[in-house]
Computed example of a mutant assay.
Amino acid sequence: MLTKILITILIIVSAVVFIRYKKSLEQQATLGKTTHTITIQQEPESSSQANIKYIAIGVLSLSLLTGTLMLFLNWQEEHRLYDIKIINPQTGGVDHYQAYKKDLRGRTFTTITGQQVTVSDLERLEFQEVE
Rank of each mutant, 00 (worst) to 15 (best):
I5C: 13
F72M: 07
T91K: 09
Q49L: 13
Q90T: 14
Y100K: 14
I112G: 07
Q28S: 14
L73Y: 10
E126K: 03
P44Q: 15
I7N: 13
T8E: 14
D103I: 00
T30L: 11
K85C: 06
L25Q: 14
R105T: 04
K85P: 00
I12L: 14
I52W: 04
L60Q: 11
F18W: 11
I38V: 10
I87G: 06
I19Y: 08
D83N: 14
T66R: 01
I87F: 12
E26R: 13
G32M: 03
V130L: 06
K33D: 08
L64Y: 05
S47I: 11
I57S: 05
S48A: 15
E45T: 08
S46K: 12
T8G: 08
L10S: 12
T113L: 08
I55Y: 04
K101Y: 01
S24I: 15
I5L: 15
A29D: 14
V17I: 13
E129L: 07
I11Q: 01
S24G: 06
P89E: 11
L64E: 07
T91P: 02
Y21K: 04
I19L: 10
E78P: 02
Y54V: 09
E45G: 07
H96G: 03
Q41R: 11
G114T: 07
E129I: 08
H36W: 10
V13R: 05
G92N: 03
G92E: 05
R80N: 13
N88D: 15
P89D: 08
K23P: 01
E43A: 11
A15N: 03
L65Q: 07
Q115F: 03
T108L: 03
T110N: 00
R124F: 02
T66N: 02
R105Y: 00
V119R: 02
I11Y: 02
L125D: 01
T111A: 05
N51P: 01
E123G: 02
Y54N: 10
T118M: 05
K102Q: 09
W75M: 07
T39G: 00
K85A: 07
G32F: 00
I11M: 04
G114L: 09
Q27C: 01
K4S: 12
E78G: 09
S47N: 03
L65E: 02
S47E: 13
A50S: 12
Y82H: 06
S61V: 03
Q98S: 14
A99T: 06
V16S: 08
T91Q: 09
E126P: 00
D95T: 13
L125C: 02
T30A: 13
D83E: 15
I40P: 04
I19K: 09
L64I: 08
F109V: 00
T8R: 10
L60V: 02
Q116W: 01
Q42S: 15
S61W: 03
S120V: 09
S61I: 04
T91L: 06
P44V: 10
L81N: 05
